[in-house]
Design a protein around this nucleic acid. Sequence first.
DNA 1: GATGAATGAGTTTTCATTCAT
DNA 2: GATGAATGAAAACTCATTCAT
Lengths: 206, 206, 206, 206
Amino acid sequence: MARKPLTNPRKNASQNRSRATVDALIEATARILVREGFEKASTNRIAELAGVSVGSLYQYFPSKEALVAAVIDRHNQEIMRVVRAALAETIELPIEKAVRRLVAVAIEAHRIDPKLHPVLAEQIPRTGQLKDVEAFNREILSLVRAYLESRSELRKIDPELAAFACVSAIEAVAHNAVLNQADTLSDKMVRTLVDETTRMVVGYLR
Amino acid sequence: MARKPLTNPRKNASQNRSRATVDALIEATARILVREGFEKASTNRIAELAGVSVGSLYQYFPSKEALVAAVIDRHNQEIMRVVRAALAETIELPIEKAVRRLVAVAIEAHRIDPKLHPVLAEQIPRTGQLKDVEAFNREILSLVRAYLESRSELRKIDPELAAFACVSAIEAVAHNAVLNQADTLSDKMVRTLVDETTRMVVGYLR
Amino acid sequence: MARKPLTNPRKNASQNRSRATVDALIEATARILVREGFEKASTNRIAELAGVSVGSLYQYFPSKEALVAAVIDRHNQEIMRVVRAALAETIELPIEKAVRRLVAVAIEAHRIDPKLHPVLAEQIPRTGQLKDVEAFNREILSLVRAYLESRSELRKIDPELAAFACVSAIEAVAHNAVLNQADTLSDKMVRTLVDETTRMVVGYLR
Amino acid sequence: MARKPLTNPRKNASQNRSRATVDALIEATARILVREGFEKASTNRIAELAGVSVGSLYQYFPSKEALVAAVIDRHNQEIMRVVRAALAETIELPIEKAVRRLVAVAIEAHRIDPKLHPVLAEQIPRTGQLKDVEAFNREILSLVRAYLESRSELRKIDPELAAFACVSAIEAVAHNAVLNQADTLSDKMVRTLVDETTRMVVGYLR
DNA sequence: GATGAATGAGTTTTCATTCAT
DNA sequence: GATGAATGAAAACTCATTCAT
């Protein structure tokens, strides 16, 4: 992805410009999807908000669907980056800390453009990206499961089910916390919520 | 509202006809939303599937949005009915049974047309029904909280937060169970999942 | 038109009811035409304002066009009645008084539902009532012309042209007076205007 | 606004194309309004007659009403141009010639697409252009009044009323001459009519 | 006769996409 | 490459009219 910056300045310039246009389009699409919903998100409007012509939009994206897919992709990448980083750190921590970290990262991940979520969720089945999301979900579940299996201090339970229950619970608390109570949720309340959720999950696993 | 069938036969006939038309339209809308998404749900198609003319559609619903709002309403009513009934029974049960009942009803509620959920979710902010959903959420939270406060055998925790954590956890497990794994979820697995979730929540509360 | 009132009371009752319905429909149509224009004047709306069902509307008028034609007819009748009455009186008056009377009746006639005028004007060519209006115009012109010919005190001019010029001038002053300045026209101003117009026309004819 | 044709050729090209499209649409609308009335003037038909797509119509006009408003505006502009030019010349002429000129220009103005007039008249109250028309009427009245005030040879009369009466009379004769008798009006008759009307008005003013 | 639910052709309007400049 | 005018299929919506009750 990173090309030699000192050579090919002309080409780089235009590559940068292209990149900037693509980014602007994705960003504009995301914004309009949030503000007005999929229905009202017309390509002309998107192009206008991105500050380019419709023609240019179609230079970079073959269809509206492709644009939306790009938004989904970008959003997924961001979430995956955050979550994967956390999971990688977590693997070595003792349960208490690990769970606390998972809860925290779940909230962090849900705070990434939370209003975009439901809009994209409806489109995912239609853009063929269900596979990606499911794969990611499986990846997380399997990492958590592996972690649980590696911890001898835990009581005997089906690690598959336990992972499922834990991940669900954590994700849900994060989801509800961010989405439903977004405005009224003070930092202190978030911390308490992290404590409680951690306690619930840890209590369950031990 | 319910008139004796032998009086007002004329009016009742036409009322029934109206009612049937309205129901058919809502049903058709729900079906198309599930099958093809909001985008493809054109009023002409909806009318056709409902077996009435577009004109009739607009006789009863001033816009496509109004129709979708009606679908959301109907869906919400069904869920509320199921959940309220369960909560009413639950209030007198001991914790273990109460939680088990809540988990079960959460799954039951999520099994009501689960594919409709994400489609409606996108529309709710735009149809002005957020208030309704939020009110329902608050209602549940407050009932659960009242239950927790009434139970002396529980450890000391902020009942607000505890209720929030429990309801989130339960709801999420149900949501994930029904939505993500719908096809592969055997009855036995569901039962095990109910067990696990119950254990998690009860362990947390005691 | 007047049937024996004491016999056939039943039938008369229903005839009266019919008559009332027809009148209500014509009146409702006129009102809506004024308020919202031809385009927005739907038969359903008209029926509603008239307090009857659409079905009844079509019992009495075979089409929307027929309804509008009835409105035009009623309006024309009213104007004709007023104008004819005035012309009949006028024929024997000396010029000064005759002209003054014509000016007065022109204003009176234009005050009959003045906002309805432009709306009906557009429809007249399409309802086949142009003939009626033209015939009425010719009738007036010919009466005025006959009057002018009968008055020996007038200077020699082509009575056809003179009649045309006089009627036009009178009608126009009335039209502008009523339509353009409707709100701001005090009774005193109207009287002055009648004076001026009379003077103009009389001066022209002598 | 007028750019040198050799600079900005690209932009000018597209500006010209736009301008041509807009003009074609206004022209097509006017034609259809005349031929078939407001009712039958559908946007698809207008676009077709203009030789462009409906999409283009809506690129330039947000609604059918806006199109009609543009037609009204164009028509008003044309009339105003003709009338203003005549009034400017008139101001220095002696009465006889001035009145003759006004009568002539009134006829000329009414000959601009006379069938369009009644159709537009109905729409004006609904397009918010009443203000424009009224302002123009006031402008004319005030110019004529100023003229009358500047002429010492006239008898003493309220110049406001005199202007009103004269303008009305002139306008009416022109209106009736053009509209009602359009087909049968020979040039000679028109000339005689101008003579007569001039005589009437001049006689009145002296 | 009266009613008003139902009809569906026809209208207005939108928007993804193309293409001449 | 960029532009934005143009396209036209398809969507939302209206309304004169019919007809079962």
